[in-house]
């Protein structure tokens, strides 16, 4: 699969990555090369193989329903770019 500039822009938008227009063609070339590498997978028929999501064949452990966390808002918001009245601030969201 070869990606063109419009593909790259679409992907960058989905991933919310700001990339300059100048950089787009280079990304297109590089990403296409990576996809070419990736598509070597197609050499093998996997239609009868079940997908493997985890290395270990184990099931989810369940946690007891207990409140174990205490308020650490000040600690957490100490590393936040912008807060006020305990809220994280972002540019105005219009619905």
């Amino acid at each position: 699969m070869s990606l063109d500039s419009s593909d790259v822009k679409k992907i960058a938008h989905l991933a919310r990555l700001g990339i300059s227009d100048d950089a787009v063609p280079e990304y297109a070339t590089e990403l296409s090369r990576i996809l070419e590498l990736v598509e070597q997978m197609n050499a093998v028929d996997t239609s009868a193989v079940s997908p493997m999501a985890h290395p270990q064949d184990v099931v989810q452990r369940l946690r007891p329903d207990e409140v174990t966390e205490t308020d650490n808002r000040d600690g957490f918001q100490g590393v936040a770019p912008a807060t006020e009245d305990g809220l994280y601030l972002v540019p105005r969201v219009i619905e």
Partner: peptide, 20 residues
């Protein structure tokens, strides 16, 4: 811009491949 400026080239490449 935060993500575009905050991530380096290789990270952006991989994010884009994965997104695709």
């Amino acid at each position: 811009r935060s993500r575009g400026e905050g991530f380096g080239e290789e990270v952006k490449r991989r994010i884009m491949i994965g997104t695709y």
